[in-house]
Structures are given as C-alpha cells and as structure tokens.
C-alpha cells in the first residue's frame, strides 16, 4: 500500500528525519545517516573557520543530491536572528526549506512561540517552506499553520533530553486539529519513543541526540529506522482497543470434558 509523505509537493522517502550534530566525526555522521535510511538531514548554519581552511566540510560527507538538507536556526533567540539565519541558509543551500527555531530559554531550549509565530509568518511570505519547532500546544500549532507553516514540529520533550513523548494526548490533539503534517522534533530517547510518536499518527519524527549520543550510533540509527517504520505500520493497521479484562485467544469449543 502506498504511503508517501508529501509536503508542499516535495516527496519524502523516509519518515525518519535525522540531525547531524554531536557525532564524533563526519564519517560517523555519514554512516549513521546511511543506517537510518533518512533522506532529510538537518544542519546548522555557522561561520566558516577562516583560520583552519583545510578543516573537512559536512557536505563532503552528505550528498545534497541524495539527501534533503534542512537547515535550522538553532541558537537563535530573536525573530531577527532567526530571519537572518534562514535567509543565509537559503543562500548557502539549494532549497527554501528551513527548520525554524526561535529559542526562549537556554536551559530548556523551549521555543519562544510568540517570536516563532512572527518569524513563521514573515518567512512563509518570503517563499520559505517553514518547519517550525514548537511546543506540544495544539492552539499554537494551529496558529503556526494559519501563519503559513508547511508542517508543525512539536517537541516530545526538551531537545537532547531523551525523555520520550511526555504528552501524547496533546500530540494526539495537535494531529486531530492539523491540516498540515505533524513531525515530532526533540525528546526521543530510544527506539520505542519513535514508535510511540508514529503510532499516534505523526507524519514523521526528527531525531538527533538519541542516535548521535548512543553508545553505538550506527546500530541506534538502524533501530530508529525500524522503530519509525513499525510505528507507522501499526498506526495504519489500527490498534485494538484497551480493555481491563482478558479476552481469550484460544477457543473454548473442543475442550476435553
């Protein structure tokens, strides 16, 4: 059965999206991406190292023809900075995709949703395909959608926390409200968390730390691939209802008397 993820006419080959931060080196990054089967890879925008000009370049390890590069605005604490980084990312890359972050606080890295909404509105008008990183707040998700977001990316838990999907009920409500795809971004700690996100009906899940920080990132990347797929299949298959008491799987008919 065909089950393609298409956002703004762009076809995505995998529902697992991965970040490229926190790896030991670019070689490990490339191997993890490969094992994950992801076609979307997020990147950050930073100054070129002028003093060490021979330092390796991430793009030597990730082929932009094979992968969709999704630049983020991580580290931006104001609308102005987020706009600046988004516009630079568009110029440095090949597409209008941006994973928009306007961060409100250093310790939690929770989004500043007021700034996020403003920046989403402006960038959507400039033709960006905006993927805002937001709270697990159904009302904010709706506001972002109205502002022109191509999808919404609610957090499962704080970035890098590995706490899993802390409020599955809110994610469920976001999914019921949303007319745009919903992609859980942040909070996944292990494979079952990715499955939970997908079983809820999310369109995709974005994972970085849970893979890069695992003792064996390559194996965890592979685990996430199957976990995402399993969750998606289970969602489409339609799970059974939960009951308090048992229902026997084996018949009583034909039992010895």
């Amino acid at each position: 059965m065909e089950d393609k993820l298409i956002i703004r006419g762009i076809e995505f080959k995998s529902r697992l999206w991965v970040g490229t931060g926190k790896y030991k080196d670019f070689e490990e990054t490339a191997r993890a991406i490969d094992a994950s089967g992801a076609d979307v890879v997020t990147v950050a925008v930073r100054r070129v190292n002028i003093t060490d000009r021979n330092s390796p370049n991430l793009l030597d390890y990730i082929d932009p023809k094979k992968h969709k590069i999704l630049p983020n605005t991580a580290g931006c604490y104001s609308v102005e900075d987020a706009l600046r980084y988004s516009r630079l990312a568009r110029e440095a890359g090949v597409s209008d995709l941006v994973k928009l972050e306007v961060i409100g606080d250093e310790r939690t890295l929770f989004p500043d949703v007021i700034g996020l909404l403003k920046a989403t509105e402006i960038l959507a008008k400039e033709g960006f395909v905006v993927f805002p990183y937001t709270n697990d707040d159904p009302i904010m998700a709706r506001r972002l959608e109205d502002a022109g977001a191509a999808a919404v990316m609610p957090l499962g838990a704080p970035i890098g926390s590995g706490l899993g999907i802390r409020n599955p009920y809110n994610i469920k409500i976001i999914l019921e409200f949303a007319k745009v795809p919903v992609i859980v971004d942040a909070g996944v700690g292990t494979a079952s968390d990715a499955t939970v996100a997908m079983e809820l009906g999310c369109d995709a899940v974005l994972i970085n730390t849970a893979i890069a920080g695992a003792q064996d990132p390559i194996s965890m990347a592979e685990a996430m691939k199957y976990a995402t797929l399993a969750g998606r299949l289970a969602y489409r298959a339609g799970r059974i209802g939960k009951k308090l008491y048992a229902t026997a799987s084996s018949p009583y008919d034909g039992m010895l008397t």
Partner: peptide, 10 residues
C-alpha cells in the same frame, strides 16, 4: 563580511 556554511546540527 560574514561567510557561513552548513555544520552538523539537529
């Protein structure tokens, strides 16, 4: 002048 590029990020 600022020159930026893509680096690893989430």
């Amino acid at each position: 002048i600022e020159i930026v590029m893509f680096v690893g990020g989430g």
